[in-house]
């Protein structure tokens, strides 16, 4: 069933999809590059509405009938203007929020059939999520932040060297004992990426990694992300950074 869906999805990705959001028409232009990687993450007919609850607020259609397949070693960028639903797609893909309708597949398994605990366990093994700004935990050093994902499995000590290596990899080996308040925005982002990779993640979901960074810092982040794909890690990134868009393998532009 998954293969069939993938075929459908590929066909669908090749064409321009039209979506409705309120009274306005929007388009999602998807540029597809040929790939034969596996599909660790797939979004099918995702629709996300906000509001329209008991409070009487008008419902807003953020995303309508969105489809995407992310293959291993591929970097897919979701671009678009602010408020176009980039972060919503990322959180849905990471299993942090539920779509209004549609299905999310992790390595072919639908999230619909999973409980909260199973989603958490699968997310830990599969997905590394990097929030906008890094979302580091205050009061903990960069190294401790990187090790936090290992806490649920009790592997903090086992992964300590790996965490240091990852911090070295992102260029922060000498600042591992500094706390978030002592780090710059780019440094926090890099710590967050290291943290996302600590458990051998197969999908990296990154939200606006280069926002409010200078070009040099942004390029460094892009370079790190690009390097991860060479290790077979799929990267789903939301950004409107042209350089990032340019270097991504596939692109969905939300209009």
């Amino acid at each position: 069933m998954t293969n069939e869906l993938n075929l459908d999805r590929e066909a669908h990705d090749r064409m321009t999809a039209s979506t409705r959001r309120g009274a306005h028409k929007t388009r999602a232009n998807t540029i597809v590059k040929a790939t034969d990687h596996a599909t660790p993450l797939e979004l099918s007919n995702i629709t996300i509405h906000y509001g329209g609850g008991k409070g009487g607020a008008e419902a807003v259609n953020v995303v309508d009938d969105f489809n995407m397949t992310l293959h291993a070693g591929e970097m897919h960028c979701v671009a678009g203007r602010s408020g176009s639903g980039k972060t919503s797609i990322l959180t849905v893909g990471a299993g942090l929020t539920l779509p209004t309708s549609g299905r999310v597949f992790w390595e072919g398994d639908s999230l619909e059939t999973m409980g909260d605990d199973e989603i958490a366990d699968r997310r830990r093994a599969l997905i590394g999520y990097v929030d906008q700004g890094g979302a580091l935990i205050d009061g903990m050093s960069a190294l401790e932040n990187v090790l936090l994902p290992a806490v649920p499995d009790g592997e903090v000590e086992q992964r300590r060297d790996m965490a240091k290596d990852l911090l070295d990899l992102v260029g922060l080996g000498r600042r591992m004992r500094h706390r978030p308040a002592q780090l710059s925005g780019g440094e926090r982002q890099r710590v967050a990426i290291a943290r996302a990779l600590i458990l051998g993640t197969r999908v990296l979901v990154v939200d606006e990694p280069t926002a409010s960074l200078d070009r040099a810092a942004a390029n460094r982040i892009i370079s790190i992300l690009k390097d991860t794909t060479s290790d077979g890690i799929a990267v789903l990134v939301a950004s409107h950074d042209h350089e990032l868009v340019r270097q991504s393998d596939t692109l969905t532009e939300l209009i």
Partner: peptide, 26 residues
């Protein structure tokens, strides 16, 4: 203050309990 602030004598964060303790201490 760009000196490393982290005190290595603090209890390592390796469980929800130690995490909670670190947060309250911080």
């Amino acid at each position: 203050d760009q000196d490393p602030q982290h005190d290595e004598r603090l209890i390592a964060v390796d469980s929800p309990l130690t995490f909670a303790n670190r947060q309250l201490s911080a």
